[in-house]
């Protein structure tokens, strides 16, 4: 340590970036404490509500509802697969954990999309915004995921809320990127047509750009949800609850059996969420129209 410091110290002074960030976080914690409290209460109450809805009914009722959803968006195969998968989750005694994780994923994804899609639209329409947003997203995506957990724990302590916030930060990038890409990829001539017939920009966005970009935006939504699920597991480290808790516990105790069961439950949840959102993407009007043949 000392040798390293003396090696470089003559040329580059120690840059105390970490310390600065820490004091910035400390300052924020002190100054905006009431705001953070409000945010925490807000997210906690929504999470509790969601979790209550998913966990209170007997497992087979929820499993049947989710299977019915899968059947409706895709078909009977996915419906049956969903039912069997969730029965297995219940059989492994991971049902309550899985529902907690599902609630976390739904909430974090919803927040990420609520912020990410409008930001993506803005970036698609404004080159300056795009230039700023792109490196920020790069930073957020490449920073090791659990590093986000540290400041969120400082601010929100433990529990589901730091997990949700860290998940939102981690998962938002594809929501922004795919939305921007999708809107930029819309055939310029079709947008021109809207303009040529006297449509306003807002109306072109609503009637042309968003519908035509929808298949790409849906792919982004799918990615957001997948990233959210992986982060929700990592946030088990801060006691966010759900399957992540058991995964972390299994790691600490080197408990192969528990690790496998919790891990498999994550996989089943992931497959369910992926297939359902992919099927939803296929149901977008433009995707349907492009598949139609003579």
């Amino acid at each position: 340590m000392i040798a390293t410091a003396s090696d470089t110290g003559t040329f580059v002074p120690r840059v105390e970036l970490g310390a600065w960030v820490e004091s910035a976080i400390d300052w924020m914690t002190d100054t905006f404490d009431p705001v953070f409290d409000a945010v925490k209460t807000f997210f906690e109450s929504i999470y509790d509500g969601l979790e209550w809805v998913l966990s209170t009914p007997p497992f087979f009722v929820v499993a049947l509802v989710l299977a019915a959803l899968a059947f409706w968006v895709k078909g009977w195969k996915l419906g049956v697969g969903t039912l069997l998968g969730f029965c297995l989750v219940a059989g492994m005694n991971q049902w309550d954990n899985a529902m907690e994780s599902l609630a976390l994923v739904i909430l974090a994804s919803a927040v990420a999309l609520l912020l990410g899609i409008p930001l993506g639209i803005w970036a698609a329409r404004n080159a300056h915004v795009s230039r700023v947003v792109r490196p920020v997203l790069d930073f957020m995506q490449t920073m090791p995921a659990f590093v986000y957990l540290i400041p969120t724990v400082v601010i929100f302590l433990t529990g589901p809320v730091p997990g949700i916030i860290a998940t939102v930060i981690f998962a938002i990038a594809p929501g922004v990127r795919f939305t921007e890409l999708g809107i930029r990829q819309v055939d310029a001539e079709v947008v021109e047509a809207g303009r040529a017939f006297g449509s306003t920009d807002r109306r072109i966005l609503r009637q042309i750009q968003i519908p035509l970009a929808m298949p790409t935006i849906m792919a982004g939504i799918n990615q957001v949800i997948m990233l959210a699920l992986s982060m929700v597991v990592i946030s088990g480290m801060v006691g966010a609850g759900g399957l992540g808790n058991d995964v972390v516990a299994a790691l600490q105790r080197v408990d192969v059996a528990l690790g496998f069961e919790a891990g498999l439950a994550v996989v089943i949840l992931a497959i369910f969420l992926d297939r359902v959102t992919a099927a939803l993407a296929d149901r977008a009007p433009v995707a349907k129209a492009l598949r139609a043949t003579r």
């Binding site: 055939d187 079709v190 021109e192 047509a193 017939f197 006297g198 035509l212 433009v286």
Partner: peptide, 21 residues
Amino acid sequence: LRELRRTRVSMVFQHFALLPH
């Protein structure tokens, strides 16, 4: 300008520029 486009001048495009949905 938008009003003029609505009432005075319309356009046909090379690649049709129809709304696929």
